[in-house]
């Protein structure tokens, strides 16, 4: 068992039961989280920062997280690691951020009805989603894959709800272009 970091977190937890749950979770996911973060960022120091952030987040949300089972907790840790790592990487892209701050048109005319029953087009959509720039992809995933509300995404990413809306619209516009042109 790696106690190196574990003891650092412990003072934030109150009861012995919480400490035990946290210790078990830490031991199970620490290395996987670090490896995931390293794979996304390709930067050891950044991966360590992400691990730190994930565990702080777990402790802050411990009432919710500790009430579910261990597999769900692990999934939460992995999901938080991917979100944080992608957010961190995308936040470095200042050029894209500037573009995002611009006003955007609506994506109301984005119509995917033609995909229904066309497996090939559906697979192409999945490929296009995977190819979205991270700055679009992170809020898009949170909304559509993780079923989060805009205010929750805003809180998670430290941006305004308005910015969340803009980024999701931009993601859709980008997807429309990619689907038209081919990913």
């Amino acid at each position: 068992m790696d106690y190196q970091l574990l003891y650092i977190y412990m003072p934030l937890l109150k009861s012995e039961e919480e400490k035990q749950i946290f210790a078990d979770l830490y031991n199970e996911v620490k290395n996987t989280c670090l490896n995931i973060a390293l794979k996304i960022t390709n930067n050891h120091a950044m991966a360590e920062d992400i691990l730190h952030d994930v565990f702080i987040k777990i402790i802050k949300n411990k009432d919710t997280i500790f009430s579910v089972n261990q597999e769900q907790r692990k999934a939460y840790a992995y999901k938080s690691t991917v979100n944080r790592a992608r957010d961190l990487i995308s936040s470095h892209d200042e050029k894209l951020k500037d573009q995002l701050d611009e006003d955007v048109e609506t994506a109301d005319d984005f119509d995917l009805c033609y995909i229904v029953e066309k497996e090939e087009a559906y697979q192409k959509l999945i490929t296009c989603i995977k190819a979205l720039p991270l700055i679009y992809r992170v809020p898009f995933d949170m909304r559509y894959a993780q079923d989060m509300k805009n205010y929750e995404i805003a809180k998670e990413l430290g941006i305004t709800e308005n910015t969340v809306s803009k980024r999701i619209i931009k993601a859709k516009l980008k997807l429309r272009d990619m689907m038209d042109k081919g990913a």
Partner: peptide, 29 residues
């Protein structure tokens, strides 16, 4: 459709991340 495709893309990637991370060598902080 977007919700379904986003979920599929996300789950596929998560599975890849976790599989390769679990097989990777332990990292010393």
């Amino acid at each position: 459709i977007l919700r379904r495709a986003a979920t599929t893309a996300y789950e596929q990637e998560m599975a890849e991340f976790i599989n390769s991370a679990e097989k990777a060598e332990p990292i010393i902080t």
